[in-house]
Design a protein around this nucleic acid. Structure first.
Lengths: 125, 125
DNA sequence: GGGCTGTTATATAATATATATAACAAATAT
DNA sequence: ATATTTGTTATATATATTATATAACAGCCC
């Protein structure tokens, strides 16, 4: 986890930044299935934030099926793949994003091009 | 604006829900370029919320280039198309969404399929 | 002038976020 | 056995964000 970089001036809550960066870390294979995350106390100290902020992030990651929490060893990356649900969640995320795109005259093909670009970035990551 | 439907139990702030619903309204052509939005006072009363909450939403919509605010007549839908910027914004939005998708084993083709579906939903709106 | 606009200012309440301590049960390691 | 480390839970508090409540202002129109 040399990956975490919190922007304290961001308008995004710290726990949200943590969640997103861990998910980005998994997507780019910097963290892999089976890897252990630092304990809530360790990571909190490392970043310089409170234990509960990390705990909140870990709990949500657990609830959304990205990690499992082991009482004796900490948080381990374990993806729960409920693909139907994941696709529905993605669709929900995409609605507003695409609505904005349509307002700004971005065509379907242009949007797809960007999706491809990002997939490529991640997969070679 | 028979379109606005605020969920007071949502974890999303009211002003964010307002912004998103107006953008969705534009994308689905329920509201069109040149249409006037209700005045901040009108819409606030109609929904049953405070004037400033609506004003906050309108101000952000203005700043992001979806409306222009006319002192004598109110808010008018006027899209400012800075396409380069819009594409960058979209890319930023998509990063986390696609990172989640990759974690959940959703392929690029599957993601693109969803993008197409949403474009179709909007364009036949 | 009276009635609309958005805009700005101020004060306050309610909620969300972040921190500070502390304690607990379970699993190790020494 | 004892000490340590894990996530978990609880409580209290501080800070920031969000939402509300009033009020006033300038510009425009009838």
């Amino acid at each position: 986890m040399h990956v975490i970089n919190i922007d304290f001036n961001s308008d995004e809550a710290i726990y949200v930044q943590l969640i997103n960066q861990i998910i980005l870390g998994i997507a780019t294979s910097k963290i892999q299935e089976g890897d252990y995350l630092p304990s809530v106390r360790e990571l909190a100290e490392y970043i310089g934030i409170n234990m509960h902020t990390v705990n909140k992030a870990y709990s949500i990651l657990k609830q959304e099926g990205y990690v499992k929490l082991d009482r004796r060893r900490g948080a381990i990356i374990a993806i729960d793949i409920d693909k139907m649900r994941a696709i529905e969640d993605m669709k929900e995320d995409l609605r507003v994003t695409i609505a904005k795109a349509i307002c700004k005259n971005i065509s379907c093909d242009e949007a797809i091009k960007v999706v491809r670009e990002i997939y490529n970035e991640f997969e070679r990551g």
